[in-house]
């Protein structure tokens, strides 16, 4: 598992867009990944309130779900998103880091099913949830 965890860490570091958004891999292993994204003015979607764009939260969710698939014990290699649905429950508080936890709750030879939740510093009230299906690839 340690090799795979390392591999996943390396892989996320190698994703230009994840780096661009300042994503940090906090935890990974056994089909679960936690990734955080610090607040940044360039990610603002609503200039009047300073709230982060939904699209930036989508990018964070997508990356985190992909990482959860790759670190699942039954996943042989890489993955790509088939579909991803995101429910936006509330706006993230401006200035706060957004943290996403994704779980790959079921995997077959072809498809991985993932759920994720995004939170800001108020961890009792999720900002968004996601559910998606991902491909299961033989290699990277």
């Amino acid at each position: 598992m340690a090799d795979k965890t390392n591999l996943a860490r390396q892989f996320i570091k190698a994703i230009p867009h994840a780096k661009e958004l300042g994503m940090i891999l906090e935890e990974i292993g056994d089909g679960t990944a936690v990734i955080s994204m610090p607040y940044d003015a360039k990610l603002i979607g609503d200039p009047q309130s300073g709230v982060i764009a939904g699209g930036a939260v989508s990018a964070l969710m997508d990356t985190c779900c992909g990482a959860a698939v790759m670190c699942h014990p039954d996943a042989p290699g890489g993955t790509a998103t088939i579909d991803l649905r995101i429910d936006y429950m509330r706006v993230a508080t401006p200035g706060q880091t957004i943290t996403t936890r994704a779980t790959c709750h079921h995997i077959t030879r072809s498809v991985a099913f993932v759920r994720a939740v995004a939170m800001d510093e108020d961890t009792d009230r999720p900002v968004a949830t996601a559910s998606g299906a991902f491909t299961v690839e033989a290699g990277f």
């Binding site: 958004l21 699209g55 930036a56 989508s58 997508d62 790509a80 998103t81 991803l84």
Partner: peptide, 13 residues
């Protein structure tokens, strides 16, 4: 390939 999150963000925008 383009990041899936970029694609999602582009569609949402």
């Amino acid at each position: 390939a383009i990041h899936g999150g970029v694609t999602a963000a582009f569609l949402e925008i």
